[in-house]
């Protein structure tokens, strides 16, 4: 388990965008979705989620509307905008390139040098 402060900067945004891309979610749902799709590898401090959500909304990556939750309470639902989708694609590409590059570097053995 890693807490939010150990997550690379900017990663939380990416995680949120990914979570929201899988369907409209309220904040608590975003948290659960991140836990679920990461199989518990990441657990963000719960409050920290909201400034990130607000920031993404302000940047136009997410849009929100009030709806009714599974257990009939008013809840705010976040949905990915087109801008958010684009950003998610770009960030995913960047992340994958970086990850494979890092993997190559870290896999290097003495005999390869």
């Amino acid at each position: 388990m890693t807490n939010s402060s150990d997550i690379l900067p900017g990663t939380l945004d990416l995680l949120i965008l990914k979570a929201a891309s899988l369907g409209s979610l309220h904040g608590f749902g975003v948290m659960l979705r991140i836990q679920q799709i990461s199989r518990g590898a990441f657990e963000v401090e719960q409050g920290a989620l909201y400034p990130a959500l607000y920031r993404l909304e302000e940047k136009g990556m997410l849009t929100s509307e009030w709806g009714v939750s599974e257990n009939n309470r008013r809840a705010k639902y976040y949905r990915l905008t087109r801008k958010g989708e684009k950003r998610l694609r770009e960030q995913t590409d960047t992340w994958n390139r970086l990850a494979s590059a890092m993997a190559t570097v870290l896999d290097a053995r003495p005999e390869e040098v």
Binding site: G27, F28, Q46, G47, Y50, S69, K76
Partner: peptide, 16 residues
């Protein structure tokens, strides 16, 4: 006000 409501909702869900 709406922010308050949103955060309360979160905590209520977690408590549930």
């Amino acid at each position: 006000h709406s922010m308050e409501e949103e955060l309360r909702f979160h905590m209520a869900e977690r408590a549930a």
